[in-house]
Design a protein around this nucleic acid. Structure first.
Lengths: 148, 148
DNA sequence: TTAACTATTTTTAGACG
DNA sequence: CCGTCTAAAAATAGTTA
């Protein structure tokens, strides 16, 4: 039982940390589902276990939300980008309410199927490059890939 | 006060829905921060207001987590992809614990700077396509872009 | 609109099997 | 590694300012 208020800081014990990770991850997914249902919105949560494995939830899908995020942030680039920082230097990006977003790009005369094929092709290319870059970035951080 | 148990279903009243969205979004961000701190992990949450504005939080950053997600899921593609479905047909992707991930791709002889330039170029291309596709997908759902 | 307040529900740390 | 239990902490729906 939670007898005392728990301090929000790193849990040093690895087993306990993993247990808490599992419980809180489930809680986070549940909260996300509730947000989606009650507010009729889209949302995604992505996190990684200590071993580096992916846990992700999204509605309608993780990829859908991620793509929409990428599209929206890139669309904001040619205008001002309102970024509200929150405590702890972690990134909190918010666009102002009632602000118009602009989706003015070339490619206007392409059909949906053409666009999707082009997108698929570039996805493949891009993944390979991102893989490689991430491999480089993360290769120095894989001390605890081998769990007990 | 919460006098009765609330049903987790769509809130029909627009103002109430938005209020709940704001409150629950804050709660979700807080939970995510606690997960990050207590479990020493990385996580990101992305969601959208009714007006279509982005609210995202991530540690170390949203983009970092998103890129890692993209890299990991694409890396899994050439192997079996363990996808655990959860209730409600929404996507929950989990990699098995203690499973090795493979980052074997061509491009091996490219340097970091070459890769980054290539990535930048493709980012730009891809964004334009994703923009367009999303514009098409979401253009039919923008009834409530004009808020009071 | 946005911010307190607070009665209740919900989450969760730790224990146990 | 599950799941279950429980007391205390935390989140939150509805209200009021």
């Amino acid at each position: 039982m939670v007898r005392t208020k728990v301090e929000i800081k790193r849990i040093e014990d690895k087993a306990k940390r993993h247990t808490t990770f599992t419980k809180r991850r489930q809680g986070l997914f549940k909260k996300t589902k509730e947000l989606v249902k009650r507010c009729d919105t889209q949302a995604a949560v992505i996190t990684f276990s200590l071993a580096g494995n992916i846990f992700a939830f999204g509605h309608p899908s993780v990829d859908n939300v991620v793509n929409r995020y990428i599209a929206a942030t890139s669309a904001l680039e040619h205008d001002e980008v309102p970024v509200h920082e929150e405590a702890e230097k972690d990134a909190v990006i918010e666009t102002k309410e009632d602000e118009e977003r602009l989706f003015e790009v070339p490619l206007k005369d392409m059909g949906m199927d053409e666009l999707e094929e082009l997108n698929r092709t570039m996805e493949e290319m891009k993944k390979k490059v991102v893989d490689k870059i991430n491999g480089m970035i993360w290769s120095s951080k894989n001390e605890d890939l081998g769990l007990p």
